[in-house]
Design a protein around this nucleic acid. Structure first.
Lengths: 196, 196
DNA sequence: CACACTCTAAACCGATCGGTTTCCAAACAC
DNA sequence: GTGTTTGGAAACCGATCGGTTTAGAGTGTG
């Protein structure tokens, strides 16, 4: 295992997984047991369970983002780069370990928008919208702000569908995004922001 | 209050509200206290808390649906009837008592798709898709099934946005649905399934 | 060696969890 | 009147909640 990782790393890893899989209401005893860390250590490293929720969400955030967004070096078109996000979501949702977007799920479970975990969730959702927006600007669409918001909503709606139906998406998210890009004039053939 | 309602009705009402506002992890003690019903009565009326979750969700379902969907007698066009759903969602999300679609929230919190509450959630989400589909058929769109699914995802994505951002939607959901209808050729002027 | 530091294991705290039981008052039957 | 039923108040059950504390093993450093 990762027994040689520091207690903090083990806690953040276990928390990221268990809060996602079982919900934020899982007990700290089970959490510490899974992480192989004593409660004393946990409460030395984190002020409270709420803080651990927020920090673990912030720690899984970048990797979740990296799992969705294509790397900067990928020379694909904006359309392809945007659709790649929905294709990766399609893959994630097809697994039986999918419980929705961790940021949305956490915000939904916490209910309180001022909870530190909700603040982290808000931040990472904005980053996805920002990614869409920058690609849409490169594609030269008319209203990249509105379109980026709509793509984010399509993304979260697809997530919700996979959770509620407990089924794979089978491309419905990808096709929805593709239809939206079609309607906005972001064709497959055209290159990023360039004529011909 | 509704003290003259039966204990069952009081329980379902209180459960529908508290499970939504505080999450399904709220305790049965708090629930019974809010309903003015003893735990003994509750466990005579419902086999378990899980069953109460499912039955209360099923009991609020129709009213939530009725709050969103226009009545059958409303002589509006399919486009207007579909957009009316998003406009009512916009109103709901503007209130400070909005915590997302109760069906999606419950499914997300329960995690287990076989939980009776998850089954109820699945059922009511399908009914919204069915409503969209029947309107799209009336509007004569090419692929009403796919479009109904996409509108449902737009709806749930808008819900997620309102929750994560803890803000009103300010029409972003309505505009997204309108854009989708535009792209599908469901114009404001045309009447239901009739050539001019 | 002694000392300091970090860490786990586990007991402990009061509160609450889902669920059961006892007791008793009010409402009903006849 | 005497039953019977309904249902609320509250005690009770073992388990778990978030959080604190004690004890002691392990790992340095000097």
């Amino acid at each position: 295992m990762n027994s040689q990782a520091t207690p903090r790393e083990r806690l953040l890893d276990a928390a990221g997984e268990l809060f996602y899989r079982d919900g934020v209401n899982i007990g700290v005893d089970a959490l510490c047991k899974a992480a192989g860390v004593s409660k004393k250590s946990m409460y030395q490293l984190f002020r409270s369970k709420d803080e651990l929720i927020a920090e673990s969400l912030a720690s899984v955030g970048p990797s979740y983002q990296q799992a969705l967004e294509p790397g900067v070096e990928d020379g694909a078109t904006p359309r392809e780069r945007i659709l790649a996000v929905f294709e990766k979501q399609d893959l994630l949702a097809a697994g039986n370990e999918f419980f929705g977007c961790p940021f949305v799920s956490t915000a939904v479970e916490l209910k309180n928008p001022e909870h530190p975990g909700s603040v982290v969730a808000r931040h990472f959702k904005q980053r996805l919208t920002d990614f869409f927006r920058s690609e849409l600007v490169a594609a030269g669409v008319d209203d990249p702000d509105a379109m980026a918001i709509q793509l984010t909503m399509a993304f979260d709606g697809a997530s919700a569908r996979a959770v509620v139906r407990a089924q794979a998406l089978n491309g419905v998210g990808v096709r929805m995004a593709a239809a939206m890009l079609d309607a906005a004039g972001v064709r497959a053939a055209e290159l990023a922001g360039q004529a011909r």
